[in-house]
């Protein structure tokens, strides 16, 4: 068992074109670090010094992690994580 992470089109150049990848970790932050080992550069597109990047939406089992605990949100085998770039502009 692992955690499935759905990858948006714009980041699939970092996953060899894969729409979904698997990883592990106890928190979302650990999961992203684990993914970055096999998909270098992915974490940097999701996280900056201050935490989760603005205008990147991350959902754990269809809940926006900003309303949970952000990168500290606990994750477990069998969970589903979805990454979507925000649709926004000026």
């Amino acid at each position: 068992m692992a955690i499935e992470v759905r990858i948006p089109t714009i980041l699939r150049n970092l996953t060899g074109g894969d729409k979904a990848v698997e990883g592990k970790g106890g928190t979302l932050g650990e999961l992203f670090a684990d993914l970055d080992v096999r998909h270098p550069g992915l974490r940097d597109r999701l996280v900056d010094d201050k935490g989760l990047r603005k205008f990147v939406n991350v959902y754990l089992n269809d809940e926006d992690v900003r309303f949970l605990a952000g990168l500290e949100t606990e994750v477990a085998d069998g969970d589903n994580v979805t990454i979507l770039p925000a649709v926004a502009g000026g």
């Binding site: 939406n57 959902y59 269809d62 926006d64 979805t82 925000a86 926004a88 000026g90």
Partner: peptide, 24 residues
Amino acid sequence: AMMNAARSPTFYEFDSMEQLKLWN
């Protein structure tokens, strides 16, 4: 039609939950 979560004359942003529902 999506709601503009920013409700602004100079910015727009899809509501994150509405966006997830639509993308799914």
